[in-house]
Design a protein around this nucleic acid. Structure first.
Lengths: 353, 353
DNA sequence: TTGTACGCGTTATCAG
DNA sequence: CTGATAACGCGTACAA
């Protein structure tokens, strides 16, 4: 309770105030007049310790402000209680929320999270993975930027620790995965657009090297195919505003411009909106608009943007639970998380020709 | 290059494919027919190693896929090459960007980043701090949610490693700090509002326990005092949409409603906008609006919101550089980073009475 | 230039 | 129930 750490004179040869080198089990053992191994037993809650022993040791620990050295513990036990998190862009609010959700449950279970931003470079991601392995992470949460990168995949396959893929699909891996069910969300959006009378729908998509983009593209094509006279256009690219801007300009100034647009990410949405503004196209009079994933303030746009949404914190929490679950032996499971569609005034009937 | 790791039969008693336990220096030394310390010298670039030695060792390392164990290294050397990052809400894009900026320069210098979200609870932050200390972080980046929390401050003061405060001011600490110059940004905003004819300006502010809110409040009061007949109102609270909503409703339905509003954070802005929408008050006809820190999509609102902005990635990079700089002996420096003001149509002359 | 031996702070095994 | 003691994987004086 009180913090006058060790005011007894003479007992300690060092300058009194804060112990320069933090105390170790050794000092604790001496202070308590017991063996070092007994101290160990106390801090690791070993059943075979007498109450008197525990008392003495805990007192010494308190007086010295002892904190066990996690590094030494890890070296000895093999467990680091550290989980790695690698993603292309934690600056993206979606991923930041996922990371936050994950960190929360990890910490609750006694784990710390090591993060790394791979900036869409598989090479960097691999390097970061190595760095984490050297730190003996007990598990890994990763959202690769390219599911086809051989070197990275090989590293993931041969990893000796549990892995959870975040919205990614890599064939030859036994990793667990949290997968968002993009299909139902985009299907709802597309069907809604079709019911409004749209016949030409375009998807300004992200990278084809990752699952979300692929699933969205496939679903759009599929749904379009289920209805007569529906044309679907897909512009693959990267998850950037630049791509959103360029693709939208091309699409909307081309011969048969689509009457409805779906932006494949919040970054892409920014580009799409810039292009539409520049072209003086209004929503939904000139073109209906849907985007993927929530963005702050989107509710205040005029019109608000229809959104295919999901719960990022839940994704993060689930990912964390999935890595931890693998410690109990079970193989990497695949968990599917729902996706919703919230329609707003950004979707309306297409302009009559 | 090739990955048929050790296909020689008989040499290894284990199943051939991937070595179950990763190789250590010991195996490398045996394989190369040298002493274990020589291996150590090679991987730590010790000058006194013959080329032949280096060759042999590197070959063995390659063949075994050896990676040095960072934990053991840390235990031995005392350096963990790990920096902690503690903040109240990494889900907040501002902090996520800061974290990203920091992680980038840390990694470039060979450091990994351990993150923790403190959810505005000093108690949790302290716990996380302890956890990181046990992991022997070499330094810490922290943005406390309450500069007056005694327990946390005491822990920071007595820390044995360099610290950089992120936009926080704690008296009794020798930590370095990256401080945004909120004063000039908000001064520019307020003077602009005054020049438009506003005489009653309100700040829907964040927590008074942190520097940014205080500096903004002080500056608003000061600038108002420099001009005749200007009334300033300040509503302290927390950095939440709820506070923004509640405060705005009260302010705008009260006796002398202000003609201009400044939102103290992007979360607060959301609440302010909700309240204004509910009250059917239009911007800037009924009330002019300014917010602090950039938010995605704010450029697409009608009108776009005037913003007091700063560069979050730069803040993060600077914070990282500031911790690392302290390794070279120098005391914790204080770096001030600029703040700008971008005005848009959300500011206009006040409605005539 | 290279090898030997000890210690970093813990945990775990084995006697007592 | 408690106490010595050997690892964990590596760095580093020190000796050869």
């Amino acid at each position: 309770m009180n913090d006058h750490s060790g005011n007894r004179r003479g007992a300690n040869e060092r300058r009194s105030t804060p112990p320069l080198r933090r105390a170790g089990m050794r000092e604790v053992a001496e202070r308590a007049g017991v063996a070092i191994s007994s101290v160990s037993r106390v801090i690791s809650d070993h059943p075979d310790v007498s109450d008197k022993m525990r008392e003495r040791v805990l007192a010494a620990i308190e007086e010295l402000g002892f904190q066990p050295d996690a590094l030494a513990q890890s070296l000895r036990t093999g467990e680091s209680f550290t989980i790695g998190f690698v993603a292309a862009d934690i600056g993206n609010p979606l991923l930041a929320q996922i990371a936050m959700g994950a960190e929360r449950v990890l910490r609750q279970r006694g784990y710390s999270m090591l993060v790394a931003n791979s900036f869409n470079e598989p090479g960097l991601a691999l390097e970061q993975l190595r760095s984490m392995e050297q730190r003996r992470i007990d598990g890994l949460l990763i959202s690769v930027s390219d599911e086809t990168d051989e070197a990275l995949n090989k590293a993931l396959e041969s990893a000796h620790y549990p892995i959870t893929l975040i919205d990614r699909e890599i064939a030859a891996t036994s990793a667990a995965a949290v997968l968002s069910d993009h299909a139902t969300g985009i299907r709802a959006a597309v069907e809604h657009l079709i019911s409004l009378g749209h016949q030409s729908i375009a998807l300004v998509n992200g990278s084809s090297q990752v699952r979300p983009s692929r699933e969205r593209a496939e679903t759009l094509a599929k749904v379009a195919g289920e209805h007569p006279n529906i044309t679907s256009t897909i512009r693959m690219g990267d998850f950037s505003a630049e791509h959103g801007y360029g693709a939208t300009k091309e699409l909307m100034t081309g011969a048969d411009a689509p009457t409805a647009l779906i932006a494949g990410s919040n970054q892409i949405l920014v580009g799409v909106l810039r292009a539409l503004r520049e072209l003086s196209l209004s929503i939904p009079a000139d073109v209906s608009l849907v985007t993927c994933d929530d963005v702050a303030l989107s509710e205040f746009l005029t019109p608000a943007i229809s959104t295919i949404s999901r719960d990022p914190a839940l994704i993060g929490r689930t990912a964390a639970e999935l890595v931890l679950a693998q410690f109990s032996g079970e193989a990497g499971a695949e968990t599917h998380l729902p996706t919703g569609f919230r329609t707003t005034d950004s979707c309306g009937p297409p302009r009559q020709k």
